[in-house]
Nucleic acid binder design. Structure first.
Lengths: 154, 154
DNA sequence: TCCTTCGGATTGACGTATCAACCTGAACGT
DNA sequence: ACGTTCAGGTTGATACGTCAATCCGAAGGA
């Protein structure tokens, strides 16, 4: 599917709007999370995954699957969070290669305090900006892009 | 516009699809830019702005306006790029407070080499994933979110 | 004139992201 | 048994982003 070298006006407009929106939304949500809950977006994401898992316990590998982050990013992130007492690292008995990650009480308290605030911010800046049809279409477009990327060679 | 504490299924689905798409798209485009052109996304953005300006010359302030980045981010980024010879810093004559940024020959060559590759990647992963109607609707949704955010208190 | 204010810009410290190199032990073939 | 391969995980180096503090000179007031 080759094409001309540049994008059409329309395509460019959509692309630039997307990038600008992404920048502003991330900066807004990230700043609020940091200010009001003392968590970075990365902290929040990990805590969400852990708190939704059965006993607040997951393998680093599973966290990688869920977030689609690189393994080294996961590892660094968990180190920092362990340092602050949000999570705890434990060896899987029998196979020391695998490491289990457990949500601490501190971590659970942090995510439970942060989640309602964050959800309110998402609603305010994202959900409430669109009609229900728009939201539906937007979500489907995101899924289409996601599917497209997954179908492409690395 | 207050609401329930959580998002509906639909809202959550759209939000998660958006976040997942954002992650994969950025990682794909960023890696390609780095690998094939030796530029970070931030480098690329600055070079685009400069190369589209009249003589490859802008004030740091204007770059801030155009990118919506914090001034310290601009400053750090320009320092790194100057170090690598992509841009050059110059004092505004008469008023040493303001600093002009000029695109070097190296910088212009870099952006001219990178742009077609990057555009092709954007087309491949983003534009070609959507129908023309979808793209239109997606762009309008992004603009609506952008407008919404700008209308909110900081 | 002096002083204060103000906004563009820089700096340093710290947290975060990515890449490449490496470690470790299970699984497999011979 | 031995060696190779392989996947999960860690580490260190380097680049990037954010915050708070600071610098600097123009503009305005008393």
């Amino acid at each position: 599917m080759s094409g001309p070298e540049w994008l059409t006006e329309e395509q460019q407009r959509a692309w630039r709007a997307f990038k600008a929106m992404e920048t502003m939304l991330n900066s807004r949500l990230g700043a609020s999370l940091q200010r009001e809950a003392g968590l970075s977006p990365a902290d929040y994401r990990i805590l969400v995954e852990l708190s939704e898992s059965s006993h607040g316990r997951m393998r680093a590998y599973e966290l990688g699957e869920a977030t689609q982050w690189e393994k080294s990013r996961i590892s660094h992130q968990l180190s920092r969070m362990a340092q602050r007492g949000l999570v705890e690292r434990q060896q899987c008995s029998k196979d020391t290669r695998y490491s289990d990650v457990v949500l601490t009480e501190t971590g659970r308290a942090a995510i439970e305090a942060a989640a309602p605030l964050h959800v309110a911010n998402v609603r305010e800046a994202f959900v409430d900006a669109l009609t229900s049809q728009q939201l539906q279409a937007f979500g489907e477009a995101c899924e289409a892009i996601l599917a497209r990327i997954k179908s492409l060679p690395t």
